[in-house]
Amino acid sequence: MNIFRLVGDLSHLLAIFVLLLKIWKSRSCAGVSGKSQILFALVFITRYLDLFTNFISVYNSLMKVIFIASTVATVYLMYIKFKATYDSNHDTFRIEFLVVPVGGLAFLVNHDFTPLEILWTFSIYLESVAILPQLFMISKTGEAETITSHYLFALGSYRALYLLNWIYRYYFEGYFDLIAVVAGCVQTILYCDFFYLYITKVMWGKKLSLPA
């Protein structure tokens, strides 16, 4: 474990709970893409299947449980409890256009052709594009609530910190996983446009609105 990975995991945890609290407190999921949340739930479920078979540490197991539970809870709040506030008219990204190609790629490019490894690879590839429905929804509505932009900033920062973690681990531990690094770069690049808007607008107290 290193500081980049620890801060990255905490940033990820923060993002998930900022969103969960926003929906719970405001009793509304306006401006939030349910499709992205479904993809994130799929990412965690396919990645943490080894939760009961491969114990790494208390921290590792605890975080896996928290990530799965909080993301499933978010999906529940969006599609069941506060379904009336779900903005399905703007959350129109066709996620099958993500899941199918990513599934195919996981079969073709992986470290090991075993079910668990292919599911892990699928999860890594899917996570890199899972935010697209959310970014697409913001581009359609033209703006995002400030709390939603904080959620996105923390979520985007987590994988950027993981990139630093991989640089650290490469030089100090000789650890390198090309699949995770490439997917992590794609994932972080997708946030660049948002990071620019966040830093130039939200940091100065303005609302995040995309140029019309």
Binding site: D50, N60, M63, H111, W120, Y162, F176, L178, A180
Partner: peptide, 10 residues
């Protein structure tokens, strides 16, 4: 190959 390395990352 990498898959043998324990997947210790989240």
């Amino acid at each position: 190959n990498d898959s043998d390395v324990n997947k210790d990352e989240l």
